[in-house]
């Protein structure tokens, strides 16, 4: 099997794919990117890694028809409420139209290969598919 790397560090591939947030040890606010201190409470006490629920509800979406070069369109971009943590992601494995994608639909995390680099390593991306 080809070597695999996640598209972003907050996607953990093992033991099963899931998202990992940095949770402020002072107030519990969650962030997916590296933070110097907490945007919510200002604490610099630090962050702990926590797993984010992989099931969620689609709270907002758009169907993008014009995008950056190299991105196949149309695709669905949205915000998923995963047990109180908001996650930005594409909605995948369904037709990108308003008949198949609806506000409030239940979705779950899914992964897919998004490309292979010159050394044969696969980049693994994630999205949410209808649950």
């Amino acid at each position: 099997m080809a070597k695999q790397v996640p598209i972003v560090e907050y996607l953990a591939l093992e033991p099963t794919p899931h998202l990992v947030a940095h949770q402020c040890t002072a107030c519990g606010a969650r962030f997916f990117d590296r933070r110097n201190a907490c945007a919510s409470c200002g604490s610099a006490a630090g962050f702990e890694s926590v797993a984010v629920e992989s099931d969620g509800v689609l709270r907002a979406f758009t169907i993008v028809s014009m995008a950056a070069p190299g991105i196949p369109v149309p695709f669905v971009a949205g915000v998923v409420d995963c047990g109180g943590t908001s996650v930005r992601a594409n909605v995948i494995n369904t037709e990108p139209d308003p008949e198949h994608v609806t506000l409030g639909m239940k979705v779950r995390l899914a992964t897919q290969v998004i490309g292979t680099d010159g050394e044969g390593t696969e980049a693994i991306g994630f999205g949410f598919e209808p649950a």
């Binding site: 190299g70 971009a77 930005r88």
Partner: peptide, 25 residues
């Protein structure tokens, strides 16, 4: 060559792959 960079440690462009950053979207 996939190399993590930036605050998300991304190995590839995320706009269009992890949601959209286009203003209309």
């Amino acid at each position: 060559t996939f190399t993590p960079s930036g605050r998300y440690g991304a190995v590839a462009a995320v706009d269009g792959r992890i949601g959209t950053e286009t203003m209309p979207g």
